[in-house]
Write a protein that binds this DNA or RNA. Structure first.
Lengths: 236, 236
DNA sequence: GTATGACCAAAAATGCATATCTGGTCAAAT
DNA sequence: ATTTGACCAGATATGCATTTTTGGTCATAC
């Protein structure tokens, strides 16, 4: 989880981010002070400002780290899974990953209790982008033959965004002993989507995997560490 | 909308509820004062307390009225529609109705801006109940042969709750020019669910309509006007 | 070259006295 | 028998002075 290929942070940075993560998940962004983080990470407050310009940028860095750790689990699960190339296994594993990743979950559902003020700034942007990416993704998938030809990619993308959002949210509302097992529901949902919109043949499976890798690479380009805020470029 | 069969309110009560409805939708429960309502309904404040014990009970009555008006449109649409007995047309028309009914929408999505403090009291109860009702309903449907035998009614109910919730919520987040037409998505969703879980034959269509009527009657029994808060029983 | 924590200004929380608002009542008017 | 609106107590909002907290800095120590 820490020290993956795509984690550009030093060990100490990661310790600080670990502290920030656990505190923010517990107390929320607003109630988590920089001193708290420093204390829990066993560094001085000054040290934190050696790594990031502000609390905001520290949090930004935390978000990227978590997103990456989440994305990497997702990709590696897809690569390993027998149905990894089918259109909606992508969906299945991303949701299953969300289920096990409290921080991503808070991001995904725009949990105000955790993201606090920070949210109001980025607000709907996260979901919006996710939806837009979903549309592009599904269009690619359709070109590659992994999405049924008669399906409207925009509608399917919208539907997928909604289902994912709804599943996570409703799971928070309905008590566990009333609701069926969440992972089973996800599995069932992915199956259903696959039957409705997927193309089952070998070729599309391969095409699917191809696209997923492609999209991941593109995303990596877009969010290189330069976007991250190690304001002192470490080695000048 | 006012004066339906199942609306047990007098004309003046309805005028007051109309006022309350429009004010609450605009300013939210907390910021809507009883005096405001009285003024807009062209009655005195005292008159309002002739009909309901408290602001809370007035609002409770409003909720029931709106729920009924919504439910009645829903039922009548189902009765009229050619696919009215198919399992997921029920879903389609309920969501389409939601789309056109701001108050129900606020209830359904537990919109804090509108429901204010009132929400914290009933909180998750609304969604929970809806989910439980959904489970029972789908079990009945399955017994009657209108839900595919190999489907797990609990999972399907959960899925439907989630999709409905997600669709409405995500529609609020994604800008209209990016999102596909909402009603088209609903139509598509209902179709998909129908293909995945429905039974297409004539007999199940009839059974479906039968069940829907049955459930509606049961619900009417459960929420008779006595539950409503005309605290002075009008005629003793 | 690194790391620290006392220090600072700005912001947020607290306490409190005063003013306003609001749900609910009831004597009086119709 | 109805309906009203002035009236009330409790809740909420406002203004303001004081205290505490917090993000961020930097002279000093290692």
């Amino acid at each position: 989880m820490t020290g993956d290929n795509n984690n550009p942070n030093t060990e100490r940075e990661n310790r600080i981010l670990d502290a920030a993560s656990s505190l923010v998940l517990h107390y929320g962004y607003d109630k988590t002070t920089v001193s708290d983080i420093a204390h829990q990470a066993r560094v001085s407050k000054g040290a934190i400002y050696l790594h990031w310009k502000s609390k905001d940028e520290l949090f930004q860095a935390l978000i990227w780290r978590e997103v990456w750790s989440y994305a990497e689990t997702w990709i590696s699960q897809l690569e390993a899974a027998p149905d990894g190339g089918s259109l909606f296994s992508m969906y299945k594993y991303s949701l299953a990953g969300l289920h096990a990743h409290p921080f991503m979950r808070a991001l995904f559902t725009r949990d105000r209790r955790i993201l606090g003020d920070f949210l109001t700034r980025q607000e709907a942007e996260l979901i919006r982008q996710k939806f837009i990416m979903g549309k592009d993704f599904l269009r690619l998938m359709q070109q590659a033959g992994a999405l049924r030809e008669d399906a409207d990619p925009d509608v399917v993308a919208y539907l997928m965004s909604s289902i994912a959002y709804g599943l996570v949210k409703v799971d928070e509302i309905v008590s566990p002993d009333e609701a069926p097992d969440f992972l089973r529901v996800i599995e069932e949902t992915a199956d259903m989507l696959n039957r409705a919109y997927g193309t089952p043949d070998e070729a599309s499976q391969a095409a699917g995997k191809q696209i997923i890798r492609q999209v991941t690479e593109a995303a990596k380009m877009q969010f290189t560490p330069s976007q991250q805020s190690n304001h002192e470029q470490k080695k000048e």
